[in-house]
Design a protein around this nucleic acid. Sequence first.
DNA 1: CGCTTTTGACCTGCGC
DNA 2: GCGCAGGTCAAAAGCG
Length: 264
Amino acid sequence: MSMDTTLDIDLNINPKQNSSKTPHVEFEKDSVGESKSTMKDEPVHFLIQQLNRLKFENKKLIELLNIIQGNYYDLMQKCSGDEPLKTGKRKAHYAENCDNFVGKNGITCSCFDDGSTGTPKEIVSNVSKVYVRIDPSDVSLVVKDGYHWRKYGQKVTRDNPSPRAYYKCSFAPACPVKKKVQKSVDDPSLLLATYEGKHNHKSPSEDEISIELSKGVTEISSSSSISMSMVEQMASTLTRNPSFIAALAAAITGRILDHEMEKN
DNA sequence: CGCTTTTGACCTGCGC
DNA sequence: GCGCAGGTCAAAAGCG
């Protein structure tokens, strides 16, 4: 089964795990408690600083998304003149016409419409692809993205010697989202995850972040002008967007890869 | 014990 | 209608 060498994308956005760089809301709770007797305005200033930093990070992520979108459309244009299908009885899957879209970060994602045309639509769509760089010897076919998946099948396809794994979202009952994971036929160090459908529930990590945000902001709401709903809305909007999650995965993994390359 | 994974069988859609 | 290939099902096995 899964090996320790797997380079999974863990999209768990629980701030607890990033405590070194992004102070956690829970930390503010302690400050709030302390402020009752000493520094009353400290938590407010701290939160404002937090909010400003979040805005900055948000801006950076939007820029990243724009870059990824730009790369995607460039590649789509290059791809548009290609032959549609080589062999096979079935029609090639719409997404398969655009394989090997690997971005600068080693990972990229593509979003497609319902499959009738193969042309890109809005960022929020039903099918998306994510490439993950892994150890070529790794056979686990696991891509962690914050959701819980149940494997229900594995098949060796005609055009690819490596098996394709089929997953269903098991976090919520009746969630229609499915995921296919297969190594790239050209590059065994690339794992291709194809997501179909939309989650009808929050991700486990999203639940955690929402709870923590609510906790922290509620405690200071009486003395602060910061709007809780605004913070929640920001978090909710970002974490509910599959493209944002994919872009975040790309950014995180890209940084990891860059860091590894610098070390080597 | 309950959840997940494995894997062979079965189903479905498409081309001939 | 037949064969092929991808997708899904479900029983058995594995695992914590």
